[in-house]
Write a protein that binds this DNA or RNA. Structure first.
Length: 484
RNA sequence: GACCCCAUCGUCUAGCGGUUAGGACACUGGCCUUUCAAGCCGGCAGCACGGGUUCGAAUCCCGUUGGGGUCGCCA
C-alpha cells in the first residue's frame, strides 16, 4: 500500500508555525516512503470561509518548500458524500436523529455547572414512531456507554479512554445537511486513502470519536501520530497562539528569514537525528520518521531560529542573496534600487552577510550605501571625542583628522590635471594601505583614526569594513560625506 | 473539576539497563581584529521528587509534583 499523508488546515490567514511544521513532517514522511502528500482545505465552517486565506496558506507552504501532490480545494464541496455516510450510519443504527434544540442543550449545560457535563439526548433510544413531525433534527453518533475505546499512536503507543466519557457527538447539524468536522475528516481520509494521519495533539480526543465512525462503517483505521504542541514562550502558559505574536509563516518571511532556515528550525523542533543541526530537505527525507518525534510539548526559541537563519544567509550564494535582499533594502530606503545600486549591493554582500541574522537587519546595516542617514547616538559621540596621539599627551580633534585625511586622499587618489604623477585607484586595498600610512604619519592608532571616518561615512559605529564600504560608495560620495 | 498526554542543561535535543550524560542556541573567557560580525579554542549549566525492580537505572514499574491538551450543532 502506498503511503499517503495529508495536511488539512482550515485557513484563517497565514499558516501557523505549528501547522507548517505538521505539513513539513507529513510531507517528509510521504516522500521518504515514495508516497503522496495531500493538501485538503477544511472549509466546512462557512462562517469562517475566506478564500484569500486559503491562497495565503498555499503560498506559505510553497515558500517554505513543501509541495503537495494532491489537492482537495474544498471539503465543503464534498458535503453530499458526508451526508450520505451520515445516513448510512443512521441505517446501521450507529447514529440517531436528535430533536433536541441547541437552546435546550445549552440550557442543560449551563445548569449542570460541571465542565465534564455530557449531554444525554432523550432521543438516543427513542422509538421512531414518537418522532415529532416537521421538526428539525441533528444526527448524533451513538457512543458506547461502557468499555474503552483504544487507538494506536505511532508516537505515543496504545492510548485508551473510557467510552462513557464521550458525548454522543453531532455529525450533522440540525439544518439537516451540514456535516461536522469529526465526520468529514473520517470520510475524507477514508475516501482519499490516507494511510497516516499525523496532526496536533489537541486532536487526540477527536481521534477516539473518529475511531467509532471508522468502526461503524467497517473501514480500515489509518495509522495515527499525534504531534506535540508548540507551547507559548517561557513564562507564559498554554500553547503558542496568535496572541503571542510571531506565530505565522508570513511574520518570519517579512522579518527576513530564508525559507530553508525556517524549514530547518521547524524540522528540528520536536525531532532530532543524533547531533545533526543543519539538515537539508533531501537529508530530512531520508532521516525523518514520526516514531522519532518527541512526545512532550516544546517552546519556540527565536534565538535559535535566528542563528540558523544567520547560518543560511552566510551559506547562500551572493547573487541569489542580493536578489532576495533587494526588496528589503527597497522597503528600508523607500524607493527602488537602480541596476547599478544592485551591483553595489552584490559587491558588498560578502561583507554584509556575515554580520546579520535576518534580511531586515541586512537592510538596516547596509542602507548607508544608498542613502544618507541621521547619525546614531554613538557615532555622534565619536565625532566629539578627540583622538589621542601615541606616546604623547596631545590629542587631535576628529574634524581636524578628517580634514587631514581628505587632503591625503587628494594626494593619493585624485588624478592630477597637468602632471604625470601616479595616483591610486579608489579601491579597498589602496584605501587600507593609505589609512595605515596616514595613521603612521599622524602618529595615531588606526582604529582611532578610522572611528570618526566610519561615523561620517556610515552614520554608525557598527558597520561593514570601512575600506570596502568606501570603495562601494565611490570617492566623490565619500568626500562629500566627510565634508558634511 | 473530569478524562487523556507528557517530563534530560535557561531553550531545542542525543541517550533506548553499564557513557567522564553528548551536541546546538543563549550566556561567558580567550585568540584574531579597522568598529561590528564571522571563524577558531575554552568555560558555565541538566537526568523534577519519592519509592520500587535490578549486580547495576536518565533509561523499566508505581506514586507525587509540575506542564500541556480536551470537555461545542468550531476545525
Amino acid at each position: 500500500m502506498i503511503v499517503k499523508t495529508r495536511i488539512a488546515p482550515s485557513p484563517t490567514g497565514s499558516a501557523h508555525v505549528g501547522t507548517a511544521r505538521g505539513a513539513i513532517w507529513n510531507y517528509l514522511y510521504a516522500k521518504k516512503h515514495g508516497g503522496v502528500f495531500a493538501l485538503r482545505i477544511e472549509d466546512t465552517d462557512r462562517d469562517r470561509y475566506f478564500p484569500a486565506a486559503i491562497e495565503e496558506f498555499k503560498k506559505d507552504l510553497t515558500w517554505i518548500g513543501v509541495e503537495w501532490d494532491e489537492l482537495v480545494p474544498s471539503q465543503y464541496a464534498l458535503r453530499k458524500r458526508h451526508l450520505e455516510v451520515a445516513n448510512q450510519l443512521l441505517e446501521k443504527g450507529a447514529a440517531y436523529k436528535c430533536f433536541s434544540t441547541k437552546e435546550e442543550i445549552d440550557a442543560a449545560r449551563e445548569k449542570a455547572e460541571s465542565k465534564s457535563f455530557k449531554f444525554q439526548s432523550p432521543w438516543r433510544d427513542a422509538d421512531p414512531s414518537t418522532y415529532p413531525m416537521d421538526k428539525p433534527f441533528a444526527i448524533r453518533l451513538k457512543t458506547p456507554q461502557e468499555g474503552v475505546i483504544k487507538i494506536q499512536d505511532i508516537i505515543r503507543g496504545d492510548v485508551e479512554i473510557p467510552a462513557k466519557d464521550l458525548e454522543d457527538l453531532v455529525i450533522i447539524r440540525s439544518d439537516g445537511e451540514s456535516p461536522i468536522y469529526n465526520l468529514t475528516v473520517v470520510v475524507d481520509d477514508h475516501d482519499m486513502e490516507i494511510t497516516h494521519v499525523a496532526r496536533g495533539e489537541e486532536h487526540l480526543i477527536n481521534t477516539f470519536k473518529q475511531k467509532l465512525i471508522y468502526d461503524a462503517m467497517g473501514w480500515d483505521v489509518p495509522q495515527f501520530a499525534h504531534l506535540p504542541l508548540i507551547l507559548a514562550p517561557a513564562g507564559q502558559s498554554g500553547k503558542l497562539s496568535k496572541r503571542h505574536g510571531a506565530v505565522t509563516i508570513d511574520y518570519y518571511k517579512e522579518k527576513g528569514f530564508l525559507p530553508e532556515a525556517l524549514f530547518n528550525y521547524l524540522l528540528r523542533l520536536g525531532w532530532g537525528h543524533g547531533n545533526d543541526e543543519i539538515i537539508s530537505k533531501e537529508q530530512a527525507i531520508e532521516w525523518f520518521d514520526f516514531k522519532d518525534v518527541s512526545k512532550a510539548g516544546m517552546r519556540f526559541d527565536l534565538d535559535k531560529a535566528l542563528s540558523l537563519n544567520a547560518h543560511y544567509i552566510r551559506e547562500k550564494d551572493d547573487q541569489a542573496l542580493t536578489d532576495l535582499a533587494a526588496p528589503f533594502f527597497e522597503k528600508k530606503i523607500e524607493r527602488m534600487l537602480t541596476e547599478s545600486e544592485k551591483k553595489t549591493l552584490l559587491a558588498m554582500m560578502p561583507e554584509l552577510k556575515t554580520r546579520v541574522k535576518t534580511l531586515v537587519e541586512m537592510a538596516d546595516l547596509g542602507a548607508f550605501l544608498f542613502v544618507t542617514l541621521p547619525l546614531d547616538e554613538k557615532a555622534q559621540k565619536i565625532l566629539e571625542k578627540p583622538i589621542p596621539i601615541t606616546d604623547s599627551e596631545d590629542k587631535i580633534s576628529p574634524q581636524e583628522s578628517i580634514n587631514l585625511l581628505i587632503q591625503h586622499f587628494s594626494d593619493f587618489f585624485v588624478k592630477p590635471t597637468n602632471s604625470d604623477r601616479p595616483y591610486l585607484k579608489w579601491e579597498s586595498d589602496a584605501l587600507t594601505s593609505s589609512f595605515m600610512h596616514i595613521a603612521e604619519e599622524m602618529n595615531v592608532k588606526i582604529g582611532k583614526l578610522l572611528q570618526p571616518v566610519r561615523a561620517k561615512i556610515c552614520f554608525s559605529t557598527i558597520t561593514p569594513p570601512l575600506s570596502e564600504s568606501m570603495e562601494a560608495l565611490g570617492m566623490e560620495e565619500c568626500i562629500k560625506r566627510l565634508k558634511a
